[in-house]
Design a protein around this nucleic acid. Structure first.
Length: 473
DNA sequence: TTTTGAGTTGTTCGA
DNA sequence: GTCGAACAACTCAAA
């Protein structure tokens, strides 16, 4: 036994099972305390006091606390600056070590480095465990010893390495008697944190461990169909686990085990998406500059348009392109956007409107329940053709073609753009092409009941390609 | 060191 | 409607 007392610091890993830091602490210490801190520095930076993510975390923390109590332990729930409160609590409890799961975002790394320093000055240790990813930033390297920069070779190396590991769950139950049950103050209310209720409860996004379990169980029978269904926003193709993966209410290892247990094209395809997640964490760790710069340095020279009115129309789902508008309205109303639509929306902002990818990235960051810096940044830079392994710049999505291909009946558009609900499946993708008489019959007045298209796609596409083309040599 | 093969998600044009 | 080529070279990763 290495330590008499330890403290497990929960952050984006709000579960009890298959939890690396908790498992390690229970293995190495006789007495284990647990803490979660609503970090006032993070909360203050949020754009709104009405934030589904905060409510989701708050609900999940309450469930985690109940689960810990059920297992014979307790969860200290703090509110304030984590980099001060965590070392303070470690001191008050007299622990020798603090255990947490590693975070890859630049700000979190800075915070953790500071906490480690303060703890060390007081003679305590901070252990950071691998838990968010299957393979850490330094575990998969090219033969030249450099980090991968292209997905496919990374994926090959990742799959080869997966063959060599067992991915056994980090069991907690065996040592749960070591959890310390000493009472802790009540969990602050949402109001005390400075936040209001949102429409979270009305969404199909159950919170906490139980919510993650329910979504996972519901997805398993669909897993084998993932590949055929995932691109159609009107279908239940994806797992809808992204927010749970973001806040760690389910373990990535459990998902990978499930994918590996099947051998179907659907399971392989889904596993590939999980590998993208590891890939972007790795990229962010090695290249923190991508947070506000193009991964491809020469793409920082691209001159973007300045047009706040158009940006605003995009945000509000008023571009006049039905699928793009449906996508943004889905985001605004629910905090979720289907992955296919994230690409369509990002392509439209950066290629059709010629606006800086960082604007869209920050808007998504503010709105997405599942917002994760690494994946969001990677996805935006892919779509904007500025990233590592990005889409070639001349490959520009056609918002009408994408609409016809991936929402052929217009079912998804009708859900979020009701003013077009009466249009036929043929008409709904490009309402400006409907002739005047038929438009009157539909009660559709462009510019009034639904906007004119903000730009002409064919023209915008050529402008986008020019924007990226290098000057003639 | 040099060479070789390959690269998430697409669109348009012309035959 | 269907098909293949062009889009534009460039860089990465492995042999």
């Amino acid at each position: 036994m290495q330590h008499e007392r330890a403290l497990v610091w929960f952050r984006r890993d709000l579960r009890l099972e298959d939890h690396a830091a908790l498992h390690q602490a229970l293995t190495q210490a006789r007495r284990v305390h647990c803490v979660f801190c609503f970090d006032s520095e993070i909360l203050a930076a949020l754009p709104s006091r009405c934030d589904r993510r905060v409510e989701f975390i708050w609900e999940s923390v309450r469930e985690l606390r109940a689960a810990l109590q059920g297992a014979g332990g307790e969860l200290h729930v703090l509110h304030g600056p984590a980099r001060q409160l965590i070392p303070q609590l470690a001191g008050a409890l007299g622990v020798e070590a603090v255990y947490c799961n590693r975070d890859y975002e630049p700000q979190a790394r800075a915070r953790d480095a500071e906490v480690e320093q303060v703890l060390r000055a007081a003679g305590r240790r901070l252990y950071q465990l691998k838990d968010q990813v299957i393979f850490d930033h330094d575990e998969l390297m090219t033969r030249a010893g450099t980090p991968f920069a292209v997905f496919t070779p990374y994926k090959r190396a990742w799959l080869a390495a997966l063959e060599e590991v067992e991915l056994r769950p980090f069991a907690v139950a065996a040592h749960s008697a070591r959890l310390d049950p000493a009472a802790a103050p009540a969990t602050p209310t949402l109001e005390q944190l400075g936040f209001q209720r949102t429409n979270l409860a009305s969404l199909r996004l159950p919170t906490g461990l139980g919510g993650a379990r329910a979504l996972f169980e519901a997805f398993l029978p669909r897993l084998d169909h993932y590949r055929e269904r995932r691109d159609f926003p009107a279908l239940a193709g994806p797992s809808y686990l992204s927010t749970h993966l973001r806040f760690g209410t389910i373990s990535i290892r459990e998902l990978v085990r499930a994918a590996r247990a099947r051998s179907s094209p659907g399971a392989d395809c889904w596993l590939s998406e999980l590998i993208w997640r590891d890939f972007y964490f790795m990229i962010l760790f090695h290249h923190p500059r991508v947070v506000d710069h193009a991964f491809q340095r020469e793409r920082d020279e691209v001159v973007w348009e300045q047009d706040p009115a158009r940006f605003c129309a995009w945000c509000e789902g008023r571009t006049g392109y039905p699928l793009v508008d449906a996508a943004l309205r889905q985001l605004n109303q629910t905090g979720y956007m289907h992955n296919r639509l994230r690409m369509v929306a990002a392509s439209f902002l950066t290629k059709d409107l010629g606006l800086d990818w960082r604007l869209g990235e920050r808007y998504f960051a503010a709105q997405l329940n599942d917002f994760d810096l690494a994946a969001n940044n990677g996805g935006w830079q892919w779509a904007a053709s500025t990233g590592c392994d990005a889409q070639p710049y001349f490959r520009v999505f056609n918002p009408v073609t994408q609409s016809q291909r991936f929402d052929p009946q217009g079912a998804f558009i009708r859900r979020y753009v009701p003013e077009l609900a009466a249009c036929s499946a043929k008409e709904i993708h490009a309402p400006w092409l409907i002739d005047a008489q038929r438009r009157r019959a539909l009660g559709l007045t462009l510019g009034e009941s639904y906007p004119h298209p903000l730009v002409d796609h064919a023209t915008a596409r050529l402008a986008a390609i020019r924007r990226f083309a290098r000057p003639a040599r």
